[in-house]
Structures are given as C-alpha cells and as structure tokens.
Design a binder for these strands. Structure first.
Lengths: 328, 328
DNA sequence: ATGACCAATGTCAACGATTACATGCCTGAG
DNA sequence: CTCAGGCATGTAATCGTTGACATTGGTCAT
C-alpha cells in the first residue's frame, strides 16, 4: 500500500550501507562477508524488497525492455512470433513490451516515440511502415530490428525473416507443376515490401505465359472475404488462389463455403505463414510455412550480442517450407 | 548511435533552463512565452529529443507500464484479451508488457518479481496460479487485477470476467433442453478456480438425474486431442461434450475427424471463450461467447480511476452469451 | 516614488540505484 | 615495531526529470 522499500530501507534494517546492499543484488557476493550476506538477505525478505528497475536503468543508462511493434496483434502468426520473442528474451533477463500498430502509420509513429521514451534496449518491427519518423529514428539509433519486412533502402538495420521472393516463387512453381489454370493472387498491401516480394516471386515462379488476376487486400479475414466474394461472383472457373497470408485465405474460404464450393475440388487456396492453428482448424489449407518459433532465438541473439553493422550475419534468413494439405 | 539527448541538451541549445524545457514537455505551456515555446520546440526537434520515461518515472515515483501476465500467449482468446487491454491502455498513455507464464507456477512467480522490479502501475493476471509469492505480493500492494479467475480467498483485489458458474449452468440447461444423452465434461485444470466454477455450473444445469463423465485436461489443443482420443475409443455412443475452453474443443474435434465422425451428427462439441477465429474456421463449434474485447476498457478504467477497496464496483462481471452454430 | 502583484524563467533538491574511490582494520614480513 | 597489502565496507557523485521555491523585471494603483 505504501511506497515500496528501497536500498536505503534494506540498508538501514540490516545495518549496512546502500553500497553493500547494491553489491548483494548485483551478484558481487564474493566481496561481502557471509554474515553480512545473511543479514541483507533477511532484511530484503522481511521488507519484500525488489530492486527498482527504474533506478537501475537510469544509473546504467540502459533499460531491460525491448519493444515489439506488430501490425496486428490478433493475427495468430503475429502472436506466435511475439510469444517466441518474449520467451527467448526472458532468458537474457529482458522484458518485451507489445505494441499494436493496427496497420496504421500514424499509430506506428506514436508507438515509436513511446518506445524511444522508454529507452528501449531494442525496437523490433514486425511489418514496419516506411515513414519519415521511422527513417529519422533509425538514422539516429542503431537498435532497430526489422522482421518480415526489409528496412527501406538507406536504413541500415538487421533483418530477420524468410526470403519472401523465393517463397512466392516456390508457390508459383508448385502451381505450374500441378497444372493449375486461372491463377489468382490476392496479395497484401503494396506498401509492405514483403507483399510485393511475395507477389513478384509468385509471378516469376508461374512464368510468363499464363495470365494472373491480381487483387490487393489488407492482411485481414474481412478483407480476404470481400476479395473472395468479388472473385467468386463469377462461378464458372476453377480458380487457383495464392493469398498474401493465411488471414486472407480464411476469408476466401468463407466466401467459398457460402457458395457451397468445395476446396480443393472447386477452388484451390494457398496461404502464407502457416500459424499453428492451421494444423487443427484448417486442414484444407496448403500454405507456406514460416517458422514462427524460430524468430525469438534469432532476434534475442541479435539483441544480446550486437554485431558490427557491416557484418553480413546481421541478416537472418530463416528457412520456409511448403505445407501441402489435402481437404479433410 | 551516441547517447540520446537530455533536457540539458535541449536547454543548452535553446538557451533556456531545464525547468522550462520540462514545462514544455509536461504541457504547462500557458506559463511560457510563445517565443520560448518556439525555440524549445525547434531545439528538441533538431536533436530528436524524447523525454526519458525512466527519468520521469523515477522522479514521479510511478511508471506508465502495466504488466499483463497470461497463462498461454498463443491461445487466440488470450491474445484477443491482451490486444484489447493494450489498445485501451494506450488511450491513457500507458504501455503494456506482455508476460507469458506458460501455465507454470514457478515461471509466474519469476515474472511477478520482474513486474515488481518495473514498478508496474498495475499487474493484470489472466488465469493466475495461487502461490505464496502471489499472496505475499498482493498483500503488500494493491495494484493487482484478476481476470477470468477470482483472487484466492484472503486476497482483496478487483476481478474482471464473466460469471463462470452461470455460464456453465447455461450450457448444462441447453444440453437438457436439446435432450442430449451421454454428457461429458472435459474441464480445465482444477487449480484454476474458473475451471471448477464452469464444471460445477454445468453439473448444476444438467440436474442430478443424468451421470456425467468427467475428464481433466490442460487448456491446450494437444491435451484436448488426447482426452478426445480416449473418449472416442469407444465408438458406440453419441456423446455430448462440454469442453473447458475452445482449445480443448479443437483437440476433440481433431480426434473426431480422425475417426471420420461428423459433428454434430455423431458427436456434439461445446466450447468456451469463442475467440474471433471460430466464426471463420470453426463453424461447427457451439460455444460460450466471452466478450474478449470488452475486457480492455473495463481493465483500463480500473487502472485509471482507482476505486476504494470496499466498493462493489471493483468487480466487473461481463455478460456472456451462448453462440450456437450448426455444422457447415 | 513605493510597494504589491504578475508573468516568465531559473535554481536546486529530490527520486533509487550503482560504482569509483576512500577508509579502516587485520595480518604478516622485515 | 612498522608498513605494505588485502579484505570488507562506507562515502558521495551520478544518471534525467520534475516542481517547489526563488528571482527578475515590468506594470499599476496609491
């Protein structure tokens, strides 16, 4: 109820100086006599003392907080990546603040300011939007990490993610191999470089000869549903649809269900990300599997062992695979 | 790259004192002359200055960070609640730290210490595990909020969530109304009070006469799958299964699919939570709808406008509904 | 001309922790 | 006996921000 105890309270109760208490809590115990250690421990326990991370951060000029900016916190893939990062950071004694930009540039910029205010150890950007504010901050600081979307040209910062172009191309080639006709791409917003890379890769994989219908969609179920309705209004052909992510695919699936179409007999749907729910809830969805739970260790390592900015190892390219599922 | 600028840097550049800079950034602008405001703004912008939340927190003896402890960050319902809280807190200028206890008491206690170290404005516990450490902390501080699981007897802290007993009872009554035989409860871990309340309510709703098979399961898809396999090994009856949450239900569904059973013709599955993906991916799942996105505003309000500890309004009971879905 | 008052701004002591440096004490070699 | 050296511990400056209080200079009523 009252103010939390401080080093001074513990020092007073155990009859030592604050320096000794601090030594105890920073692990310099081999410079303290055993009786003193005992006494400090008891005092701290009696008071329920925990060192203030705020006082410590101020003194050391570095905080233990990492901010993760996500484009959509309710996307299961995003949530899985965030969970993975949080888990990995914990092992280094770091905390993660989750901030949801909601696909909104202005929002993102506000959250970037907040992150700067917290003097975050690192700022992890999943699906960053390129804004002047971001460029300005990234040029002044070197604690940014870009995830799943490469930093805009001119910004030097590490990238963690898959090779989106190669993944898109793999899907394109798979479509060719299966002999799919009437190819469609419902890709994500063009202002994410990742979306464009996936699309370009897909087109490259398909080759020149076959035409591709292209739709742009937000990375949400609702937007995918709308595009799906548009596409399926014309009922006559069997489309093969490559979606920019799984959320879009879920939306298209719903549109297909409402038309009583069968997947994959009447409609082929291919997604992107393969969050862990697919295995359980979307046995009809073939998709590019991105290893969500490998992001945490890779990102935590980058934060914990900073690397010279000219080292090529700063970019971590994770492997993707194609998950091919039959309709249940 | 170098150290971030401070009030002193801004003060020096604009030729005023640090107090004036501080006044500018704390919004006391009507006590500063317009020219000075201009000059401070320019200096701050040129330096890329953002006030240090650390220095501020130390001085004001309160941080702007709220810690949310969740039992499983990869559960979409949990993630939705977290997203809702984060969103609502943002409007009050507060940040949310997400910490994943992974259903593990020891882990939870470690994270509680971390939260205390951060001098969190509030600690929000989704699905708390009752430990001595938690009791000790809760008795010293009054900034805990319990979500979806009532505080253990003796701990006084607000609760935000639904009436689990009433919800379970509603499901039981629904089962009676539909005339379901062979009722089964695959409930969550007994050490969560919420699980027991749901189960007791369910039994009460069913009434005395009909026997109920009971299984205990972790709140995961994998555990639900295992229980489902056990249950469905005996293939002969049409069971009506009430699951402790939707994750368990997904697991049971998978077990049923592998036996080529049809839902709800061969097996009735009822879930709990109704995260937003159900609408899209689980059209076969009837479930108790808990309004995930109403948690944020309720919790944020409790944090922003602290209420006397004897005020009954400290407990926020949110409404639930039954979502009845037909198999697609 | 004097003093009261106001507006704009400056001075400085916190807040809680860390750590370089200083101090005091003890041991043992010369 | 003296003093070097080491061990255990204390002293005090520092980190960035805020706000009570002090200061300055000007206006206005008497």
């Amino acid at each position: 109820m009252s103010k939390p105890p401080t080093v001074h309270d513990v020092a007073r109760l155990s009859g030592v100086s604050t320096a000794t208490v601090s030594r105890y809590f920073t692990g310099k115990t081999d410079a303290i006599s055993p009786e003193t250690i005992e006494s400090v421990r008891n005092a701290a326990e009696a008071l329920g003392y925990t060192p203030s991370e705020i006082g410590r951060s101020l003194r050391l000029a570095r905080s233990r907080v990492v901010v993760m900016l996500v484009p959509d916190a309710t996307n299961p893939f995003t949530a899985d990546v965030a969970a993975s990062v949080e888990q990995a950071l914990k092992d280094f004694g770091l905390s993660m603040v989750l901030a949801n930009a909601s696909e909104n540039a202005e929002q993102q910029d506000r959250l970037l300011s907040d992150a700067q205010g917290l003097r975050a150890r690192a700022i992890v950007l999943q699906g960053a939007i390129d804004t002047p504010r971001l460029r300005d901050m990234a040029s002044r600081q070197n604690n940014f990490i870009f995830v799943n979307r490469r930093p805009a040209p001119g910004i030097i910062a590490p990238y963690v993610g898959i090779d989106n172009f190669a993944a898109g191309r793999a899907v394109g080639r798979y479509f060719v191999e299966r002999g799919y006709e009437n190819c469609v791409a419902i890709h994500g917003p063009r202002h994410y470089s990742g979306s464009t890379e996936r699309l370009d890769g897909f087109l490259a994989g398909l080759g020149q000869e076959r035409p591709v219908f292209q739709f742009e969609s937000a990375y949400t179920m609702e937007a995918g549903y709308r595009q799906g309705q548009l596409l399926l209004a014309d009922h006559t052909r069997r489309y093969a649809v490559f979606c920019g992510n799984d959320m879009i695919a879920y939306g298209v699936y719903r549109a297909a269900m409402e038309k009583s179409m069968r997947v994959p007999d009447d409609l082929v749907i291919f997604g992107f990300d393969d969050n862990r729910l697919n295995e359980w809830l979307a046995p009809w969805l073939s998709t590019v599997k991105v290893p969500a739970f490998d992001f945490g260790p890779a990102i935590a390592k980058l934060i914990h062992e900073p690397i010279a900015s000219d080292d090529p190892n700063r970019n971590v390219i994770l492997p993707f695979t194609l998950t091919i599922r039959k309709s249940a």
